[in-house]
Each structure stands twice: as structure tokens, then as C-alpha cells.
Nucleic acid binder design. Structure first.
Length: 304
DNA sequence: AAAGTCCGCAACCGCTATTTC
DNA sequence: AGAAATAGCGGTTGCGGACTT
């Protein structure tokens, strides 16, 4: 069977985009909107592959792209999110307004990964799995003094998944908060489940040596509703109450007890995790408080 | 000044998930 | 229900500027 190629290779420009091509693409998308990437080049009069147009728009031409260097705050957030989510660059980028997955991926591979490696060689801490390009060879370690606080990086990588599956956004459904596994240590006892997402849950909740001094301090499973999470993630709760929150989504049809199975984008399962910059662990009363906040927020979002 | 090497980043590639028909 | 089309993702490549010898 096989897939048809995304575009004919003949007569298609490759490599760096010219200013004229950028202008044409920007003008077309402003007039017609995003989407229909395969047909876009022909309609816009560009000799480019549709995928190339999409990438150019998303990574460079979009008006909301944030220019300039990654700030220290952003860097710290990237490290925390990478600890929690692994190489899910798109999801990480989703929490850094104006930054693209490609930019964050490049930044990680070039800057953070090296800093972490340098840091680990000094202190015994290991990198949170920097995925340096094999083509680049061994990174040089003689860099400037790292600015990353060692406390940000636990001894064990927090996410064990080697490759990142797609992680769809979904939304919390009011009243369906199951909160079955709000206490992270409980997850470790559940050894029967072997899905890599379960490994994520365990790994992000507690490092392998039992040291719970990891950045994630609240995790809970929820049933999710597709129209809610985006609003939730955009809400003030994430930044004002717990500094950061994340949905570690993903579906596991084989496991419909601990993780609600899903055949629809309207209802799916996932994990919501909160963490504080200080890396402190929430006490059980605090966990309950967060859960309560969540439900309040759910109600508030729906009543607003 | 020239040649070689390093490094960051934009772009490409191959794959999977999702949507459409 | 299933095949095809489309969209999106992460890994990798290679260009070009900066730096070193």
C-alpha cells in the first residue's frame, strides 16, 4: 500500500527560504488562514512542499513568535518540563508562549544538554537525558560555568520513555476528577502495568532509589473532556496557584481501570501534574487543597 | 590570509495520530 | 470499517557563520 509522498520532489525548492517566499506565504495565510498545507503551495504560487510551508510558518513566520534569547526563567521551566515530560517538545513549547518546539529542541540539544552534562561531571548529577545529535559527535565540556541549579536535576532521569508519543491536549471534565492516585508513592507499588506511560507516572513521581526529592509534587489521573483543558491550561490557576501544571496525556486502551480508555477525542485519559520551582513535595493536605482548587476552577471556568 | 573545525539553527525526513470520505 | 489524506511530532542533517590554528 504505502503512503503517497507529501509532494512531488521535482521542481520544488529546498533549503533556506527567501524573503520573497516568506512574503508570499505570510500573505497567503493572512488572507486564507492556516491549514490545507498540501494544497497551499500550489494556491499560493510557491514552489515548496506543503510540509515545508507549514514548518516555515509555525517556526518562523507566525506573528506571535517570540524573538530573542531564552531567558533564565524559561530555561528553568524547560528543564523542569523536560524532567516531567521527556522529549515532548511540542508539549513543552505549549507552556512557553511564543516559543516553538523546534526552538526548544535546538536549545536543549545545544545549550541545556551541555550545561547539564557539564554540571553532572562536576557534581555527580546526571543529565535529564540530553539527546545530543549523533552527528555532532561528543559535546565539548569546557563551557562557561553552568547557571543551572543542581537541585533542579534529580539523580535519576525522571522520564524513562525513549521516544515521545504524541500527547494530545484534552480537558478536565467537571465532576469526573478521579484522583485515584494523587499520592505519588502509591504508584510505585503498582507493578503489574507495563505500559511506558505507567513508567512515566512512576518515574516522574519518584526516582528509582526512592528519593522523592523530585520536582513533580502532585499527580492525579483524570477523565478528560476535550473542550475543557485548553481553557484550564490558559487559566490563572496554572501560574498563580501552583506555578506550573501539566497534563501528561496519552491513551491506553489496554488499561481501562486505572486509565480511562478512550476511542473518542471527546473523552480521554491523562495525568495532571503540578510542581513548584522550589522542588518541594506537597503534603497530603496540600494535595487535597490542590484537588479542591482544581474542582473549584473547573466550576468557575464553566460558570464564567 | 587561508584552511580547518566547531557550533547553532533552519529545514528536512520518516513516522504516527487524527480526520475525512 | 477501512483506506487515503492530512496534520503534527521528534530525530537528524547540513548550511553558513564564528572561531581557531
Amino acid at each position: 500500500m504505502g503512503r503517497s509522498p507529501c509532494c512531488a520532489k521535482e521542481g520544488v525548492n529546498r533549503g533556506a527560504w527567501t524573503a520573497m517566499e516568506d512574503k508570499i506565504l505570510t500573505g497567503y495565510i493572512k488572507a486564507n488562514g492556516e491549514g490545507k498545507w498540501r494544497n497551499l503551495p500550489k494556491k499560493a504560487g510557491l514552489r515548496r512542499c506543503g510540509k515545508s510551508c507549514r514548518l516555515r510558518w509555525l517556526n518562523y513566520l507566525r506573528p506571535d513568535i517570540k524573538r530573542g534569547n531564552i531567558t533564565l526563567d524559561e530555561e528553568e521551566l524547560i528543564i523542569r518540563l523536560h524532567n516531567l515530560l521527556g522529549n515532548r517538545w511540542s508539549l513543552i513549547a505549549g507552556r512557553l508562549p511564543g516559543r516553538t518546539d523546534n526552538e526548544i529542541k535546538n536549545y536543549w540539544n545545544t545549550t541545556i544538554g551541555k550545561k547539564l552534562q557539564s554540571s553532572s561531571s562536576r557534581s555527580g548529577f546526571v543529565s535529564a537525558r540530553p539527546s545530543l545529535s549523533s552527528s555532532q559527535g561528543s559535546p565539548k565540556l569546557a563551557l562557561e560555568k553552568p547557571t543551572i541549579d543542581d537541585t533542579l536535576v534529580p539523580v535519576e532521569p525522571c522520564v524513562s520513555r525513549a521516544t515521545a508519543p504524541r500527547c494530545p491536549k484534552a480537558l478536565l471534565s467537571p465532576g469526573s476528577c478521579q484522583d485515584r492516585e494523587a499520592q505519588a508513592p502509591d504508584m510505585v507499588d503498582d507493578k503489574d502495568q507495563s505500559s511506558d506511560r505507567h513508567e512515566d507516572r512512576v518515574a516522574t513521581a519518584q526516582s528509582s532509589d526512592g528519593n522523592s526529592n523530585v520536582s513533580c509534587n502532585f499527580m492525579a489521573d483524570f477523565e478528560l473532556d476535550a473542550n475543557f483543558l485548553e481553557a484550564f491550561l490558559e487559566s490563572e490557576l496554572a501560574t498563580n496557584t501552583q506555578q506550573s501544571c501539566f497534563l501528561n496525556g496519552g491513551l491506553d486502551d489496554s488499561d481501562n481501570t486505572a486509565w480511562p480508555s478512550s476511542t473518542s477525542t471527546q473523552n480521554s485519559g491523562g495525568t495532571l501534574a503540578f510542581f513548584n520551582p522550589g522542588g518541594t513535595i506537597l503534603s497530603e493536605p496540600d494535595l487535597q487543597c490542590v484537588a479542591s482548587l482544581l474542582e473549584n476552577e473547573v466550576d468557575w471556568l464553566h460558570h464564567d
